[in-house]
Design a protein around this nucleic acid. Structure first.
Lengths: 247, 247
DNA sequence: TGCCTTTAATTGTCTGACATTTTAAATCGC
DNA sequence: GCGATTTAAAATGTCAGACAATTAAAGGCA
């Protein structure tokens, strides 16, 4: 583990990279202890502050955990699905908001990926998955539900669908697409008619999955995708109109 | 922007979280300058080392960039697709390796997602996309190509397919699934017969996409998925046998 | 043996200093 | 007055040393 003395980058960034490479390449395994801060100072010939900044960088990426005390130190951390997912959702959300991704692009990506789960979910969905979907559908029909809560429930419904595929890697990958859409969905005002329509489609999807009819689930998802796209377009137009009037 | 004095977590982690929340929520916008380190010391009532550790955490997540000099400081950074993708690939790869995800799960996820791109790609693929695919197919057929290079080319082919859907969000999401599979694929030894088979399927896929036949592309991808799964199973069995013999 | 104290190792935080980089202001020469 | 040069100031990057807090192990005592 060495750093390039000619590089112009921050020392802490170089050191973090060196250690990260060791972890990603498998040179360091899960729960292995890194050298103590003092030892790292000697190894890289830098001060303790610099080493600490490097370690904080790794900690921010969930690559290490630290423990105080006599047998403490920094340890390679096992990246859990939940953490990876949370990280992925944050990154995806930021990516969409910072790059002004339009509703249609995000929506297309989300439903394309989600439809990929439909056949697997139809095959493997558990009673638990179905119960979650039914519960969310019920929640979506409750009067007085705010648009934001309606969206929350929508996300929960779709996550149940994705989880129903019984493939944690798939769930992890899709969480980014589904959850990152939420801020965009929150721009939409759902009329009662919109909600009824969406609930009807959700019910059809749940029915199809319960009946293990993957093809039906897929076509209904396509319908839902199309409908959501229409709602999104209307919302964006209304938004554009409002901002024009405001000028 | 405040931190909880009762929290037991590291101060630098708390400060990083406070700033991160401000960025993610949109309170701070792209290219906005954060207070200087000295100002942050005053705001949070901590030392400069602590503030710096917090800033390094944010830098590690590509949320800020820093600049030295009189008008320098830390600025909210626009997260680019490339960075987000690189981050996503690293996380996905680590997730798979650290959690000993089996070949079948990863393979299933990858092809399910990839098949989601097929119809879009058939519709929108550019001559450029097709040229890349053909070039990679040609590369895959060259004699003396190492297994690793063959895998590289395989990934490049599939990335061209994904990019052909013309949806950057989709490309970003799928990069994680496709690239993270590579270490697992690298465990496979591809015989000449395996390669011929894969090349034939790749050619069929490219033909289907060129002819804008999404359904054909999809079914061929399904075939390829099945075939890859078989190869993976064989490789895992061979590996298990070897490790048994080694005992 | 079992409980308590001490000790050592390690990370967390603070303080102060100096180096480096970059911009803006001040100065100088004309 | 204007352009070039010098200087100053502001900011991050790095270093050194100190002390606090935490934890586990070693040692001591009944």
């Amino acid at each position: 583990m060495k750093i390039d003395p000619k590089s112009s980058a921050d020392l802490s960034a170089q050191i973090a990279k060196a250690i990260r490479d060791a972890i990603v390449s498998g040179d360091m395994i899960v729960d292995e202890r890194l050298p103590s801060e003092t030892e790292l100072c000697d190894q890289f010939d830098v001060s303790r502050s610099t080493v600490r900044e490097a370690l904080k960088r790794l900690a921010a990426q969930n690559l290490i955990r630290t423990q105080r005390g006599a047998t403490g130190g920094a340890f390679v951390r096992r990246l859990s699905y939940d953490e990876a997912q949370a990280q992925h959702v944050t990154t995806s959300t930021l990516l969409l908001s910072m790059n002004a991704v339009d509703f249609e692009t995000a929506c297309e990506a989300r439903f394309a990926l989600e439809r990929a789960c439909a056949p697997l979910c139809a095959e493997r969905r558990t009673p638990d998955n179905l119960a979650t979907m039914r519960a969310e559908i019920h929640r979506q029909g409750q009067p007085g539900l705010s648009d934001e809560r309606f969206c929350d429930s929508d996300v929960a419904f779709h996550r149940a669908l994705v989880d129903g595929a019984g493939n944690p890697v798939l769930s992890y990958q899709l969480a980014g697409a589904v959850e990152a859409m939420q801020p965009l969905m929150n721009m939409i005002t759902f009329t009662q008619r919109d909600r009824d329509q969406i609930i009807a489609l959700h019910t059809q999807i749940a029915d199809a999955l319960e009946g293990q009819d993957g093809a039906k689930a897929d076509t209904t998802l396509a319908e839902l995708s199309h409908y959501t796209l229409t709602l999104g377009r209307q919302a964006m137009e209304a938004r554009a109109k409002r901002s024009n009037n405001a000028d």
